[in-house]
Write a protein that binds this DNA or RNA. Structure first.
Lengths: 236, 236
DNA sequence: ACCTGAACACCGTTCAAGT
DNA sequence: ACCTGAACACCGTTCAAGT
């Protein structure tokens, strides 16, 4: 018998394209090469097809990124702590789990700053946060707006961490901010000068937890803990 | 007499390149075409030269973006209010002025999320914020870390506004989040369902001011208003 | 030192043509 | 309906060669 013809360019046998197969392959490429190298062309090549084929399943690269983000959010632990713990600690743990997922994919964190997670996993995360805030006695309106602020804070913190990582990897480690602070003069910018060490001090996780506590204290504060009443529309 | 030779490709007479000239031209291109179209090649063409010439003055595109950002921050009004007003209101006004500058350059806002403003104008803004927080009685450590959180909040809010603007301009106005919230079922995600209108409600400036107040209340709170003491290094 | 054309190694997206 | 090769209209950065 004659040998079976090998599939094009000697790649593993082609499986049919599908949103799921594309996302799975994209995730692998993301893990191995990072978001910058996850291009439509390279992804298509990994799937043994041409870039044009991807546009049958995703309107554009941005929509693909959104699907990737939600896939990743499936790893967030929504009950990341002893249910007997204080609600604040459980909320911080959920946010830390979310931030941790983004830490593991630094370039995705950067992307997620501008892509509110609206897929099923993103909505589950939102539900968990709202539940914890309501449990803690945060008013409905403040919970709604506050959940957004908390999520935003965690996302940006993770994204900044990712950018720092990339800079370190590039060997571009002399942060402009460090240099700028080092040359500040006491008589020109006295507050910056006095606090120049504290501004950059602290371990990341420690600062993150501190920032979450600031937001929670603010949300519980009597003066800021409610939103303009016209916007509180509790339905259901 | 023979006619004077026109300069290459009939452009205005070439002035010598310099960091200043490059930044000025880049700002014009930014205003007219947006960041996405401000490429090294197009910028060089506007300066009547080749892209390679820009690399004499800027290590790469990112460094150019940083210079652009600091240039823009020169427009931030650091005394944006009656000095007799409450420090909270003055601080909110400074942040609103900062956010306003970014609103005027939506694509730069996106960029500034990952480029801490470390130029002279950025440092002046930081000095103003630290001064106001100290005046309000916020402890040194909390002022240092809190100024970062406030700046981050303003930056991301402006950047999100910019992304929304761009989507509206593209006609891509059916936000994924809106669609997702509309199809949430009461029994699956009860909190999200109950708050689905409030989550997206509110005018941007109103939400922004509310968020600033949450952060300030949190920073003034006795429990979160201090940072781990090991990090408070007041020098000078 | 400063400047440049040309080259290198890529991009996202569209479209006519195939199956 | 799904898939594709080829084309369109671009990118950032480097480098050898010029002035």
């Amino acid at each position: 018998m004659s040998p079976e013809p090998v599939s094009r360019r000697d790649r593993p046998a082609k499986m049919p394209l599908s949103r799921g197969a594309i996302v799975a392959t994209a995730l692998n490429l993301l893990r191995s090469d990072g978001l910058d190298r996850l291009t439509m062309r390279r992804l298509a090549a990994a799937l043994n097809t041409g870039a044009a084929s991807l546009y049958v399943y995703f309107r554009n690269a941005e929509q693909l990124h959104g699907a990737l983000l939600d896939e990743l959010l499936g790893d967030v632990d929504l009950a990341a702590m002893d249910p007997a713990a204080r609600w604040q600690d459980r909320l911080a743990a959920v946010l830390a789990s979310y931030a941790g997922v983004l830490f593991a994919y630094p370039s995705v964190a950067r992307l997620s700053v501008f892509t509110r997670p609206s897929g099923p996993n993103g909505l589950r995360l939102l539900e968990a946060l709202l539940g914890l805030l309501r449990e803690g006695g945060v008013a409905p309106g403040a919970a709604a707006w506050g959940s957004d602020q908390l999520l935003q804070y965690a996302t940006v913190t993770a994204a900044e961490h990712g950018v720092r990582d990339e800079m370190a990897a590039t060997g571009d480690d002399t942060s402009d901010m460090w240099q700028a602070l080092a040359s500040v003069k006491a008589d020109e910018l006295p507050h910056v000068y006095a606090l120049r060490d504290t501004l950059m001090a602290g371990e990341e996780g420690e600062r993150f937890r501190w920032g979450v506590d600031v937001l929670l204290a603010g949300l519980l504060d009597a003066r800021s803990g409610v939103v303009p009443s016209a916007h509180v529309m509790v339905s259901g």
